[in-house]
Design a protein around this nucleic acid. Structure first.
Lengths: 252, 252
DNA sequence: CGAGGCCTTGAGCTTCTTCAAGGAAAGTGG
DNA sequence: CCACTTTCCTTGAAGAAGCTCAAGGCCTCG
């Protein structure tokens, strides 16, 4: 939605872990050259489409999800600026989920050729990308804990926190306030509830002064309480890519 | 539990996707040289321990799990022969979960140095390992769908199927029968239920002739019905590593 | 043979869901 | 800019699925 300084959000993110040289910065930037513009509420890929490229989110929010046989939906991930979509589909012949835009979006296309190019020329970025993918996986196991063992209120709390910390990574959150384009149906499908339960949980949180909502924006008022309630850990805080083998190879 | 022909289960698994040359076969084998023996029901790592090495499961079953503040448990993954444990912890300073053996186990240790060595010398194995990691992630998103949107019966069905197909990969399943060392508490903690619900679900499945249990063994009687019930897809069937960039690099 | 762990089954309860209706907000077209 | 339409949110009542608690039985292992 909001990109600062005209820089790509992925570059902003990378800058938190690496000091990029000019080549690397340019390469990262090139991923989001000629971005594809996507209108709000449109289908970007359908399940089964050939997974011959990845997407890099330059701006906007997207949802990936699957449809159950009975028509219900499970949201697998919320994609924010700086995210790379489809990395783990690369060894598979096709996408295994649907991808839909929640807002107007700008997506960089990343072909397999280009991934090749990065992997061969910039070991540091390679290490960074793999680390991102591994953190992605950690995020998923955290969500298993949420869906498997938390009640409605805590599920909603955990979801809001996870969005907040990710927005902060790319400077998209303004302190404790951020745009929040999900409907309560979307949120419900993300945390395994119904829209009714989500409505109740959010109302209760607002009444107790823990969050505040207003027309597509969300404010986190008592972050400490929320973190405590769900034992939240920010996986992005502890990334360390210095160990990554390709790095050492390139320095030798 | 049962390893055929003395071959390491990871090598068996790799052999399904690659034709290994002698060097590669030897390297894979070396990962499980001098395996560490672990007794049934013992803690292998605790959360917070430095993640300076991975484990390769040579034989036996293990569980990784987290404990909730209220003492309940969420099983994150069941580890079977051929599995690599801890890959996605590499960019993190320490393990983020507990690891416990369900049976007597034999674990190969894999230090970061050795990972380095593989990455530098055998691009094909590197591609294979990354593909495994990506499939791992797919497996996790499948479980999100299970925990978010399925009822007790279907959760149990999905779990049994996912174990079955993984055991078949390393030839540890005998047709539709396999060892099943999990208690109903373990299974419950894996799929976000209580032992009571698991007991009910299993009894119902057995009564309807869909599965059959007997003292630590499980038999799948109506696999087609079960696959249909949960729209099961076997992610390992569709792995394709031919695209992997490092491969092309080494051939060029 | 005894003890401990594991499984089963039932009763009552809690949480979340379903169904439904009313109201607010946002988008659309004249 | 206003009326209309649609989507989204809220709230309530009733129902279902799974949980808690508990007791009894089985199986295994020492």
């Amino acid at each position: 939605m909001r990109t600062k300084r005209g820089e790509s959000p992925l570059a902003t993110l990378a800058g938190k872990y690496l000091t990029l040289d000019e080549d690397e910065r340019e390469l990262l930037g090139s991923l989001t050259h000629e971005p594809r513009r996507i209108a709000r509420n449109s289908e970007v890929v359908r399940e089964g489409k050939a997974a011959d490229n990845l997407f890099v989110v330059r701006s906007g929010w997207l949802l990936s999800y699957t449809i159950m046989p009975d028509g219900r939906r499970q949201v697998l991930q919320v994609h924010l600026p700086g995210d790379i979509i489809g990395f783990c589909d690369m060894p598979l012949p096709s996408f295994t989920y649907e991808l839909k835009s929640l807002t107007d979006c700008s997506l960089g296309l990343l072909t397999r050729d280009r991934v090749n190019h990065i992997f061969h020329t910039t070991p540091r970025l390679t290490g960074f990308l793999f680390s991102l993918m591994m953190v992605d996986q950690k995020t998923h196991t955290d969500r298993l804990r949420v869906l498997g063992r938390m009640n409605a209120r805590d599920r909603v709390i955990h979801f809001l926190l996870s969005v907040l910390v990710r927005l902060r990574l790319t400077d998209e959150a303004e302190g404790d306030v951020f745009d929040f384009p999900l409907t309560q149906f979307d949120l419900a499908d993300a945390v395994g509830l119904t829209n009714v339960s989500v409505s109740n949980a959010l109302s209760s949180l607002q009444e107790q002064g823990i969050v505040k909502r207003s027309s597509g924006r969300m404010q986190i008022l008592d972050e400490a309480y929320m973190r405590e309630a769900v034992s939240f850990t920010n996986r992005f805080e502890s990334i360390d890519i210095s160990w990554f083998p390709y790095l050492q190879a390139s320095r030798a």
